[in-house]
Amino acid sequence: MKKSKKILIALLLAALMTVIALTAGCGGNDDPGTDTGKTAAPADKTAAPEEKDAYVFKKGDVTIKMNAPAEPIISALGEPDHYYEEASCAFEGMDKTYTYGSIDVTTYTLNGADYIAGVVLWDDSVETPEGLYIGARAEDVARIYGEDATGKTSVSLKKGDANLLILLKDGVVTSIQYLAIN
């Protein structure tokens, strides 16, 4: 074989090798179409944090953990008073809101499954497992959670993958929200 032909073949092979190297499969989601807008999944959805490791809300016997699979929780909670689906602008998956009297439970979709995104408490007929309720005083926040809320309009407490957001006005708790930390 002539030397120039060998060089040509070598160069073509080099070109093809470059292409193969560039297109070598990687893991991960490379199609924006399957992205629901959530930044990342918690490391292991099946191993939701223990209650002592994260803030959870309890409605009766049902424990609602942030980022936990939604299906068994929603089933246990029973038929909601209201239900609303909110699609993202373009992508698959829904943000869902289930209303049960004085609480709203929201979920998000990730890889085709729903997970708990948050819980909002709406009135003083419900309270956190630790005993905080809407209408409680700032001193109660300090007593229950050890966080000084005096003079503040909000207190954000993080434990595990849950954020407990407490809003206050004039020293009185006006809103209690559990938010999943992704």
């Binding site: 909002v120 709406w122 954000s156």
Partner: peptide, 10 residues
Amino acid sequence: YIPRAEPLAD
């Protein structure tokens, strides 16, 4: 039905 709008911290 439209879900209630949760208050925001800010």
